[in-house]
Amino acid sequence: MNRTMLTATNTLSQLQKKMDIISNNMSNIDTTGFKRKETYFNDLLAQEFKNQGRDDKEKGRLTPIGIRIGTGAKISQSRMVLSQGSLKTTDRNLDLALKKSDQFFKIRGDQNTIQYTRDGAFYLSPADASGTAMALVNGNGQAVLDESDRPIVINGDISNLSFTENGQLRASTENGGVQTFELGIISVKKPQFFEQKGTNLYALPERLNTLEVTEDDVFTRLDTGLRGNISMQQGVLENSNVELSKEMTDLMNVQRSYQFQARTITMADQMAGLVNGIR
């Protein structure tokens, strides 16, 4: 396989990954609180051939001296975009929307891990067989956590639920009692370290220490004195921040680039056939 084919093949595989990301964005346009991803490309290593013996003869040249031959392009970063989605009113007590784009709810994930989401469509589920205690869960039945990373469990017969703007849950019971819980919420500083875990959940990489960053570098826990930074609204949900027109435009551009690279392979194959046919 000649250099032209190798360069085109390298780029094709990366363009396919970008198309997959765009397709995932478009398929989640109606997913509550979904955050789209954007990809960025960088050139792979290039070789430079000196075709001029004296550099002083190239004075005033604006391009690099010599002939540069690249080896294609690759995706250098796939980053989650934290722009705020529009809000829709549901008038449902357990629907919550975070009004600051960098804030996430804490959820109990698989294998007792902590995961994060912007999806504030919550429900009540029995916490024990007796049915006297109700747990606050997401749409998949996973527990919503408080600021101390404990599941939120309400005891007694609930008569009313209300949430304050700074993330406090107040549960009134039939016997006149009131129970309060502080929802676990974080503020993300470096979303590029978040990994998608499916079902609209995100988590930190398992080997975060190998990236030479800590949890405190990636996000800030909004607890104790920082709860005043939380901005939340009850009875509304956040739509995804996916713009269909932009995603369609990006998809068409990637498809054209893909077609160009595929055509490059075809032309290289034809030229190789002509060379091999010379007698």
Rank of each mutant, 00 (worst) to 15 (best):
I185H: 02
E147A: 15
V218F: 08
G85F: 01
L45W: 06
S23C: 07
E147W: 06
G273K: 09
L45T: 09
I75Y: 08
N155I: 00
T173F: 05
R54S: 11
K50M: 12
A46M: 15
F49C: 03
D43E: 14
V178E: 11
Q52Y: 08
D149H: 10
L251I: 08
Q16K: 03
I154W: 00
I154D: 00
N93W: 03
Q168Y: 07
D149G: 06
K57Q: 15
Q192L: 12
N24C: 14
I230A: 13
T173K: 12
A97E: 08
V236S: 10
S257H: 15
K246V: 03
R150K: 15
A127D: 05
Q142A: 04
T39E: 14
F194N: 02
L237Q: 05
Q168E: 11
Q47E: 13
P205F: 10
S13M: 15
V213C: 04
T90M: 10
I154R: 02
M248R: 06
Q52G: 15
T11W: 02
Q234V: 03
N112L: 07
F194H: 07
P205Q: 09
F181P: 01
L169W: 14
F181K: 06
T89M: 15
D149E: 14
I75H: 08
L96G: 01
E182R: 06
L145K: 02
N155F: 09
T180A: 07
N24R: 08
A73K: 14
L136T: 06
R68I: 15
I265T: 04
K37Y: 13
G176S: 12
G277R: 09
T220G: 04
R207D: 14
G131E: 10
L96I: 10
G109T: 02
N25G: 00
E182N: 12
G176A: 05
I21G: 01
I69L: 12
G225E: 05
M271A: 09
R61M: 14
E147R: 04
K100C: 05
Y202E: 06
A121V: 09
G228Q: 11
N276K: 13
N175R: 05
N93Q: 10
M5N: 06
L136A: 00
N241W: 00
P191N: 07
Y116E: 12
T214D: 08
M232G: 02
S83T: 13
A143N: 12
M1S: 14
K59A: 11
M5L: 15
D269Y: 13
I22S: 04
N209A: 10
N200C: 10
I230E: 05
L251H: 01
F194G: 00
G120F: 08
P191C: 10
L82G: 02
E195C: 04
K99E: 11
M1E: 06
P64V: 13
E215V: 07
G184T: 03
L82S: 05
F194V: 01
I186C: 08
L161R: 01
Q168K: 13
T249F: 07
S148V: 09
T224D: 15
S159F: 08
L226H: 15
S148P: 00
L6W: 15
S187T: 01
L62Y: 11
Q84T: 07
I75M: 09
G184M: 00
Y123L: 09
T210G: 02
Q233E: 14
G177Q: 10
N241C: 01
T264N: 06
T210Y: 09
